[in-house]
Structures are given as C-alpha cells and as structure tokens.
C-alpha cells in the first residue's frame, strides 16, 4: 500500500486481486440468495399456485 500526494490510498496489485476475488464471492452469494428465495417461494406455494379462478 502506498499513499499518493492527495492523501488517498493506492492498492497494491495483490490487494486489488484479493478485492476482486471478494467481490466475485459476494456477487455469487447474493445471486445464490436470489435463487434460494425464488426456490422457497415456488416450493412454499406448491400446487396452490394453480388454485385460482380462471
């Protein structure tokens, strides 16, 4: 980690690589949550989803 003149933080290539990997893992976790809640909704509704007046 180095500090530029404006006081900000510049990440090293290793820190950037780790951050990217964390971002991918977080995206996968969030995507999995979406799928899980979609599955829960479908299986909780079950056959009852068709039980409505047409």
């Amino acid at each position: 980690m180095t500090e530029p003149e404006d006081g900000g933080v510049v990440l090293t290539p290793e820190q950037k690589r780790q951050r990217n990997r964390r971002n991918v893992a977080l995206a996968l976790a969030l995507g999995s949550l979406v799928v899980i809640f979609w599955l829960v909704t479908v299986f909780k509704l079950g056959g009852a989803v068709l039980n409505r007046p047409l």
Binding site: M1, V9, L11, E14, Q15, Q18, R19, R21, R22, V24, A25
Partner: peptide
C-alpha cells in the same frame, strides 16, 4: 485499519 488483506479463503 488499512485496506483489507483478507482473501475469500480467510472468510
């Protein structure tokens, strides 16, 4: 603390 050094495997 500085920028996180944690990898996915650490979590």
């Amino acid at each position: 603390p500085g920028p996180s050094l944690a990898g996915v495997e650490d979590y």
